[in-house]
């Protein structure tokens, strides 16, 4: 099949970029989207042009490296699927496919489709953990965790930190990301001692990074390749308000 790629090209963080068209004449429908970009890049290299820079690593939808906005949809048209798991059979012959990087003030563009997502790391550093010194842990069965709580924690812990929620949100908000981690840790009994400080510090860090606010549009959940539920955002709000009013710091 044939497709036209319209890719955002930007040679550096401070350069201005533009969309550039590339004609792909021999696309195998069984290729993944990234494999198609590989083919394009091989061609560009041999033509002496700069290949398209994009983040990718595991290519099985779990590391969270890849991510591009494809025709206005983060990770493309298939739900619950990362870009690396998106296959060309999802598209039709003759399609024009617009490929852009995540757009967010908190995720500055490094090159082409590569953005800097260290803001997420700084949010986790601010409190997205349970403090337990190595070797000091009590016997694992000394504290039971009700299965529904464990399942809820797991559902939220599935977040791969790709940033699609931010890319999809009309406000560029990272609430879904933060809410997933707060939900994961705050519903577990192990997470209780730091329950208030965690959410207060993480929200403070989130705001400092320059993400927008949540207006409950739900775009984040719809774009999330792991289906982190919007209910997590309600939980984050509740945890934050509760912690703020508790006076604990």
């Amino acid at each position: 099949m044939k497709v036209t790629l319209r890719i955002w090209r930007q040679s550096g963080p401070d350069e201005s970029g533009k969309l550039v068209d590339y004609q792909m004449d021999d696309v195998n429908p069984d290729m993944s989207f990234l494999e198609m970009l590989d083919v394009l890049n091989e061609r560009l290299i041999l033509n002496g042009e700069a290949p398209v820079a994009f983040d990718h690593d595991c290519r099985e939808g779990i590391c969270g490296s890849c991510g591009m906005v494809i025709n206005g949809m983060p990770h493309g048209p298939q739900t619950l699927t990362t870009t690396c798991q998106l296959h060309m059979r999802t598209f039709s012959d003759g399609d024009v496919i617009v490929v852009e990087p995540w757009r967010s003030a908190a995720f500055p563009i490094i090159k082409d489709l590569v953005v800097d997502r260290t803001a997420f790391d700084r949010i986790i550093q601010s409190g997205g953990y349970i403090s337990v010194a190595t070797g000091s842990a009590p016997e694992a069965h000394s504290q039971l965790v009700p299965k529904p709580d464990a399942d809820l924690a797991f559902e939220n812990a599935e977040c791969i930190g790709c940033g699609a929620c931010v890319a999809a949100c009309p406000n560029g908000s990272s609430m879904l990301f933060v809410s997933a981690k707060v939900s994961h840790l705050n519903v577990l009994p192990q997470g209780q001692p730091e329950r208030e400080t965690r959410v207060l510090r993480m929200v403070e860090a989130m705001d400092l990074e320059g993400f927008g606010g949540c207006t409950n549009t739900g775009e984040c959940t719809n774009a999330c390749p792991k289906g982190i539920p919007q209910a997590s955002i309600a939980r984050l709000n509740r945890e934050y308000l509760r912690a703020s009013l508790s006076g604990r710091r």
């Binding site: 906005v69 025709n71 206005g72 949809m73 852009e100 757009r103 999809a168 009309p170």
Partner: peptide, 8 residues
């Protein structure tokens, strides 16, 4: 975005 985000 150049291609408008597709609102859901």
């Amino acid at each position: 975005y150049a291609h408008r985000l597709r609102p859901t």
